[in-house]
């Protein structure tokens, strides 16, 4: 009997010390504090509260990211505003339709402000998103992965049917056409999806956080400054050195910037995993 009690006590004690997710009340408390500060137009305090709330969460929340991005936009920090608004739009943050709409609208405003700043300051900003970006995003979507995989499996089944019909001496034109179509879909969709995943893994997307971020020709402040980057610009992280990151603009312009000047879009989700959810 005593042994049973001891075991039960040990189990309870162990459960008490198990790592648990953040207490909901603490997150909500910070969230409410941020909302109150935002209502009073104290955006700096709102940012601080939202950041504390975000730090307590195990994974990004679209609402929190949207509020954080909006607060940053209000205080003129266009780089961080862009980062958090984009993260609010990520499917992994589970944005509702309303939140996605609001985040998209704010992102558009932040983008226009960044372009205006870039025009006046001479800093370099990435080109606006166009059909090519949409295509790349589509190729990276899970739907493309499913399409390629199902096409491959269907091609296998069709091949078996084709062999059977061929052995029985029946017409095979239909199975031939179906087999060719599915095989082509398997190869094309698979290769394109794989390439887009590889590109995301090799050169993950990032956002410039600091205004007029100096891009050097080589790592270190002694390197000649090639150009300056506008806060909020989308870049790709091509290479890394201690304390420095080589970034590339969509046009191919490259330069070394300090690590803290850029942030990866997937960092909050645990790094680039390839399948970023389709933007809702």
């Amino acid at each position: 009997m005593n042994v049973a009690r001891t075991v039960a006590a040990a189990v309870l004690l162990g459960l008490a010390f198990l790592p648990r997710p953040a207490v909901a009340d603490v997150v909500d408390e910070q969230f409410a504090g941020g909302n109150a500060a935002a209502a009073a137009s104290n955006w700096a305090e709102a940012v601080a509260a939202y950041r504390r709330a975000a730090g307590l969460l195990a994974h990004p929340s679209a609402v929190l990211e949207h509020n954080l991005g909006t607060a940053y936009a209000e205080i003129g920090d266009l780089g961080r505003a862009t980062l958090h608004l984009r993260q609010a739009l990520d499917a992994r943050a589970r944005p509702s339709t309303e939140v996605a709409e609001a985040a998209r609208a704010n992102l558009l405003i932040v983008r226009r402000r960044a372009e205006l700043q870039a025009t006046t300051s001479g800093a370099v900003i990435d080109r606006p998103e166009n059909w090519w970006d949409l295509l790349v995003e589509t190729l990276r979507a899970p739907a493309m992965a499913w399409l390629s995989l199902l096409a491959g499996a269907s091609a296998l089944v069709t091949y078996a049917v084709h062999l059977r019909r061929s052995a029985l001496g029946r017409p095979t034109i239909v199975t031939r056409v179906a087999l060719g179509s599915m095989a082509a879909c398997y190869v094309v969709a698979g290769v394109l999806h794989g390439l887009s995943l590889r590109a995301e893994r090799v050169a993950p997307a990032a956002v410039v956080l600091d205004a007029d971020l100096a891009a050097h020709e080589r790592p270190g402040t002694h390197g000649r400054i090639e150009f300056t980057l506008q806060a909020g610009a989308r870049v790709r992280v091509v290479d890394r050195a201690p304390g420095w990151t080589l970034v590339r603009l969509p046009g191919g312009l490259e330069g070394w910037v300090v690590d803290t000047g850029v942030a990866g879009l997937d960092d909050a989700f645990g790094g680039p995993i390839g399948h970023r959810g389709a933007r809702s």
Binding site: A24, V27, D28, F31, A32, N35, A38, A39, A46, A53, L57, A58, H59, S61, A62, V63, L64, H66, N67, T70, A71, A73, E74, A91, R92, A93, R94, S96, E98, V99, E101, A102, A103, A105, N106, I109, P142, A145, W146, L149, F269, H275, G277
Partner: peptide, 20 residues
Amino acid sequence: LAPIVVGDTVPRDPPPRQLL
């Protein structure tokens, strides 16, 4: 700018489970 989202709690749904 679109206003912030006000509420009592932060929605904290985990990321959708990715089968593939």
